[in-house]
Amino acid sequence: MRRCIDRLFVLATAACLLFALGVISFIVGVIVWRGFGALSWQFLTDQIRSAGAAGGIFYNIVGTLILLATALIVCVPLATGLALMHGVYLKKQRSRERLWLFLSVLNGVPSILFGLFGLMVFVKFFAWGKSWLAGGVLLGLMILPTVAVALLERIKTLPRPYIEAAAGLGLSDSQRVWSVVLPQSVGGLVTGLLLGLARAAGETAPIMFTATIFAGANIPTGIKESPVLSLPYHIFVLAQDSFDPAAAENLWGSALVLLGLVLLLSLLALPARLNFHEEAEK
């Protein structure tokens, strides 16, 4: 009987795994199947033409990368600070719980509300207008909880003897953070960033009010009123408004490029993540 239950349990978990793999494979398969035909050197290097029915997505890729890079620059110091506050500097359990609650709430805010917040604060109040900076900062704030939680979870698992040994050698709080806590936890930061940026790369709602337009922009030269093109918004508009079959092909091609971008981010981070794991296991 017990063996029967064991086997049923294994079967149930295997079924879950197969279901998840099936869904992912189906989504990826459809995107590759429908989008592969659109891919060409010209598609990747040309600018948008004929309302998306012709030309390429070069500036959409560039715009997306600018937004992601800005989000990364905004998010890394903030997430590191929050994680260090939680894991190192806040001594009272209640304070840590409040910070955790704040991060959970922030993580639960719908992306459309982030978009409205960005519209009110960055676009209107700061008078940046539609700008890559507004969108990048907003995306950085949106992925902040993901990155901070990944880092602070890693800090929590840091071997306590490391901290004690460093303190026993007379290292101050800040020296312990720079020499022990951060080098040993940076794998968590990379993991969190990877997850966060992958999410940010596909977000449309926060940037549609604040940073991106469908056509008519290239490399931004200023901060105020400097919108960029982006892949998610491009896909969103083509999917919603275009009845042209050529545009539909470009839509799937853009989706495939976006998928590839997320995969590339994962691959870029992989050597660093593996290296950190090996360091920890040595």
Binding site: P161, Y162, E164, A165, A167, G168, L169, G170, V180
Partner: peptide, 14 residues
Amino acid sequence: RVRVGMLFQQPVVF
């Protein structure tokens, strides 16, 4: 802690 150093029960190497 610099002047009063410490050696722990288990070796702690980084």
